[in-house]
């Protein structure tokens, strides 16, 4: 277990027809969400925003637990969102999320077309960790674009030139420089033609 901060993000496209179709389907909603978290979230957010928020929160929490060693597969109903509260007028919300005995804190920004949630082991806010969202021009190339964008941002933040993104056997992305893993934590998310990334830079330890 590392003391370095760990973060995970998830992005959900509000304007994606697949998502909108799912959110209009009662069977889908009952497989994905708990009635009480829908009611709780809809006090603050309208229907589509509430569902996008809830899904992104659950997926971000799942990815964080994976980084912490959880090996169960993702089941959205294993997660329960609560304590949703607005923290700015820009569409920023704080939330709590429970999975078994783990209770995590999260942050979600809702904008015109996306919900972008981040869960972390350390403080989370509008600029902690570094987080970015992008809309790509070609939906078929979203994953590729996300990969390239992450590398570009990571090169700027870390000043490392020979960076690569690798994945653990569990599919968790991590940065390497000249083949050596970096402590800098990264998270990538895609939905339709949107990409969300987080990066928490860790200065290399001096020997």
């Amino acid at each position: 277990m590392t003391d370095n901060p760990l973060y995970a993000n998830d992005i959900v496209a509000l304007d994606c027809p697949h998502n909108q179709k799912s959110w209009s389907n009662h069977a889908y909603l009952s497989k994905a969400f708990h009635r009480r978290e829908i009611t709780h979230t809809q006090r603050i957010l309208c229907n589509y925003e509430a569902y996008a928020f809830l899904w992104s929160a659950k997926e971000a929490a799942y990815k964080l637990l994976m980084k912490q060693g959880r090996r169960n597969r993702f089941n959205p109903r294993d997660f329960t969102v609560s304590e949703v509260s607005p923290i700015s007028e820009k569409g920023d919300y704080a939330f709590s999320i429970q999975c078994g005995r783990s209770k995590l804190k999260g942050f979600c920004r809702i904008s015109d077309n996306i919900a972008h949630a981040i869960c972390g082991t350390h403080q989370i806010g509008p600029s902690t960790p570094y987080s970015f969202t992008f809309k790509t021009g070609n939906i078929e190339k979203t994953h590729e674009a996300g990969h390239q964008l992450m590398l570009e941002v990571a090169r700027i933040i870390t000043s490392e030139k020979h960076l690569e993104i690798n994945k653990t056997t569990q599919g968790i992305p991590f940065l390497t420089s000249n083949g050596s893993p970096l402590a800098t934590d990264i998270s990538l998310s895609h939905d339709a033609n949107y990409v969300g990334i987080t990066i928490a830079y860790q200065r290399p330890k001096m020997n």
Binding site: S22, A32, E59, F74, H190, D191
Partner: peptide, 16 residues
Amino acid sequence: IDDLKINSARVVDISL
């Protein structure tokens, strides 16, 4: 999800 690049939210749709 990893190979077919299907969004995780669609797994629920697939099951339905």
